[in-house]
Amino acid sequence: MTAQIAIQVNGESRQVPQGASVAELLALIGLAAPKVAVERNLEIVPRSAWASTPLAEGDRLEIVHFIGGG
């Protein structure tokens, strides 16, 4: 059993396997949609860096997309 770390995603607490990347987190959530953006600890994680950015204990992530708005 892989050790788990605790992170916050969109304000919710979540456990992910130690060493998981941003790309793996998106896969766990089921976000195949290409049109999302990720912020980690107030810094943008560019799409090109999703696979190479490991998550760390206590990380705060925001995953956003476009919705209807005025």
Binding site: V36, A37, I63, I67
Partner: peptide, 23 residues
């Protein structure tokens, strides 16, 4: 104009604006 909001983590498969108003 479009807004930027958190994705719904419990239902990531819901319909998206882009499918109806293509960018």
């Amino acid at each position: 104009t479009v807004a930027v909001r958190r994705v719904n983590l419990s239902d990531a498969s819901q319909p998206m604006l882009q499918d109806f108003v293509p960018p």
